[in-house]
Design a protein around this nucleic acid. Structure first.
Length: 300
DNA sequence: GTAGGGATGGTCT
DNA sequence: GACCATCCCTACA
């Protein structure tokens, strides 16, 4: 049996377990053996202990922002996914990309093109757009203000439910592969969909009102406000000419969960900050820079 | 740690 | 039929 076939068998087995639990409980559920992992204190986040019972959820007003503004506003916010048994998976957003639609040729909605697949991009701000890519992966976007505009969620910092995330991610990996570190659970657009069990059927759901997935402000820290946001060209769209160069990927400088670092962009934004601090003109205009208060060492 | 190559099937032209 | 907003594994430094 090839490695690929082994993976498919493992995936099928994991899916079967979900079905078994669904039948036993009369409702969709996370596998029981996964639920028990939740109580493992040693596996809890090193970064953050979530508060409970607080009204932290972001409503529809939050999503009514221009695409680039929203992409930056997402940084530091917490994506929450509930399992049928009430277990919650949490991850802090540390990397996003803005796709503006219209003239943005790298966007699925470029030129106002509307298809069955990208319908969610044209729905009200806060609508989830889930699409398959490369035949075997999914990516999750959230629509923003603007015709056909949406923000791609690229990376999360796992905060809660890491054992479950690890199980979900392991289902697609080779048997006997080394265990994933926390920072490797959600450091890519498709990885975060796997780790939070975001299925294709979440497409067109409303992030502001859905009972199974939502966005929260961080109850403990104002990470994004106190961190430095790096603006870099978007990933994987090299074929789109000048649009590939637009610095519309945003991530928290030095964060270990970012999928791909762009050292050139980091240097440029840092030198721009120094110039700015010296009283120069707006070198980094429009790149959303903030004060530098953290280093990569603080995250490790 | 990083670079290179292969896998994969839905979507669009 | 070509493309693709990715991921994983392996080899090598």
């Amino acid at each position: 049996m090839t490695g690929r076939k082994r993976k498919m068998v493992a995936l099928t087995a994991a899916a079967s377990k979900l079905d078994v639990n669904k039948r036993e409980n009369g409702k969709e559920s996370t596998p029981k053996k996964l639920i028990h992992c939740e109580s493992d204190e040693a596996e809890q986040s090193r970064y953050f202990t979530p508060k409970t019972g607080e009204q932290l959820r972001l409503g529809e007003e939050f999503f009514k922002q221009p695409c680039i503004t929203l992409a930056k506003a997402f940084l530091g916010k917490v994506l929450v996914r509930t399992c049928a048994d009430g277990t919650e998976l949490r991850g802090r957003i540390v990397e996003t990309e803005a796709y503006l639609g219209g003239e943005d040729k790298a966007s699925h909605s470029a030129g106002g093109k509307r298809t069955e697949r990208n319908t969610a991009m044209f729905m009200k701000p806060g609508t989830i757009y889930v699409y398959p890519i490369y035949g075997m992966y999914l990516c999750m976007n959230v629509s923003s203000e603007g015709e056909g505009a949406a923000v791609l969620l690229r990376s999360l910092e796992p905060l809660q439910g890491q054992p479950i995330m690890r199980q979900l991610r392991a289902a697609r990996r080779k048997e006997g592969a080394p265990q994933l570190k926390d920072k490797e659970l959600c450091n890519g657009p498709s990885k975060l969909c796997q780790a939070l069990n975001i299925p294709r059927c979440f497409d067109r759901r409303d992030l502001a009102s859905d009972p199974e997935v939502w966005l929260e402000r961080d109850s403990k820290s104002d990470l994004a406000q106190n961190s430095d946001i790096v603006s870099a060209p978007r990933v994987g769209i090299e074929s789109h000419g000048e649009w590939a160069k637009k610095p519309w990927r945003f991530y928290l400088r030095g964060h270990p969960c970012v999928s791909i670092r762009n050292k050139e962009a980091e240097r440029e934004s840092l030198s721009g900050k120094v110039m700015s601090n010296l009283g120069s003109s707006d070198v980094q205009s429009g790149t959303g820079q903030h004060n530098v208060t953290r280093t990569s060492q603080e995250y490790n």
